[in-house]
Amino acid sequence: MSALREALAAGRFAVTAEIGPPRGADPTVITRKAEHLRGWVDAANVTDNQGAHVRMSSLGGSVLALRAGVEPVMQVTCRDRNRLALQSDLLSAAALGVPNVLLLTGDHPRYGDHPDGKPVFDLDGVQLVWTARTMRDERRLLSGRELTAPPSWTVGTVENPFAPPVGFRARRLLKKAVAGAEFVQTQFVFDVPRFAAFMSEVRDLGIPERCAVIAGVGPLRSVRVLEHVRDNVPGTHVPDALARRLRGVPPARVAEEGVTACVETIQAVREIPGVAGVHVMAFGFEHGIPDILTRSGLGRADRSQADHTEGAVPTTVLPGGAHRAG
């Protein structure tokens, strides 16, 4: 059973983070990152050759995270595998006890470390979500052949509220929700008013009732990181006000200011109706996540208390979950 699904179904504000697998065969890299997160997050994404750079696979990394006591969300992109390999990897994940999968299109190899490779994109992210739901709920492969034992993962996806065509982004998320996504993690939210406008559209479309929205956040701990995110992470939007704020403090205090800005963002998105959690992406600053969560009022103590007081109020209905309506 997925603890992430349980948290979302119970209406408890969920926290996820990210574990990037190493460029190498050392399993302790995953173990170490997992130790920073254990007990602090409901689940942690294990990325799939992130940015089209070759790493240990997300399946391998997910199993290692599981062993280290952190519930994994296995990311699966359409970039490197065709529909046969995607489905068989999804089945392997289920067999190995990976409770959540995050299905996305993926970055193009052109700007990765193997630009000479063949981009696959046999399916797109929406179709992959649809495929996973078909496998789980209809117990069939894309070919129509029946599965001997169906998987049971929670299916997630991603959306970028800030990328053009902005007027289509909520609709696109609705497509993914209808295709079967039970939760969605967004691209970094640095611009809270723009995110709130997106969420208003998302609520109008009735998305939170079927797909929990988890806002992506992260600390910009140096001007260099800020510029890297703004210029090189596809589809991110860093408002000028935030850039001015980080440039306005002495170099020694930029890291602290970046963390403070992140904490403020978490507190702000938490107030937006329909936001079911935060996804903290920390760029190698995993050890700082407990501090960020504590300062945001999402520390271990706060959350176990919240379990007692708010646990019985489901705000999100997950298909296949215990609180499914109708």
């Binding site: 299109t105 193009h108 052109r110 929406v126 970028n160 990328a163 053009p164 065509p165 589809g235």
Partner: peptide, 21 residues
Amino acid sequence: CPKELRNGPCGGVGGDGRCEV
């Protein structure tokens, strides 16, 4: 589309509508 997406744009579209790839 370099990713041959049939269901809508990817998340990497630049702020001014440029193709990521």
